[in-house]
Amino acid sequence: MAETDYRNGPTRRAVLEGGVATGVLLATSIPAYAEPAGAVSAAASAAPAPTMPMTLRINAKDLSVELDPRTTLLDALRNHLGLTGSKKGCDHGQCGACTVLVDGRRINSCLTLAAMHEGDEITTVEGLAVGDRLHPVQAAFVARDGFQCGYCTPGQICSAVGMLGEARAGWPSHASADVAAASVALTDAEIRERMSGNICRCAAYPNIVAAIRDAAEGA
């Protein structure tokens, strides 16, 4: 997406991308100076698109931002609010790395606009722990070594938290033999089917399933 990024903290990615952006600015500034005065208005019309003020409630804090309407919830979190826990894998709803909880339900933050979530209670991986006490799903991922590179992990953990709530509410899945049954037994087949929206490039799946099984049994 072509949009201006205002980053909060000096993350490694910000430094890398900042370097690239500087290069682009230098390259384009040369013809701009050489152009006649009439070109200035054309350049000005390509100025950043108008922004919208909005307040997002994230991890129990109200945060006010001005955003281009095109900004996805994921880009708002990562690029504007300094919450880089949620990851961008595919940006098209296919990998689950960007999973967050909205009013307790797991969604892909890359396929929704920030502006659509004013007034919602948004929880990211940064908001799961209570102080130094990890969320039971986080603790289970650590205990079971449910990751290798860790890139998919925030999405896996948020997704698992949402999924366990769905199972507690008795929601069936494609793996359930009888969709009318009132309750769900979270077998490994059920866990795998319910977590199929989260891809792990390192294929840490056996340990991810074990971690979620532990968290489900402990709950």
Binding site: G93, R105, R106, E166, P172, H174, S176, M195, G197
Partner: peptide, 12 residues
Amino acid sequence: LLAGASGQIRNK
């Protein structure tokens, strides 16, 4: 419905 998409997408 449950044969389509993922848990996250179905929630939206």
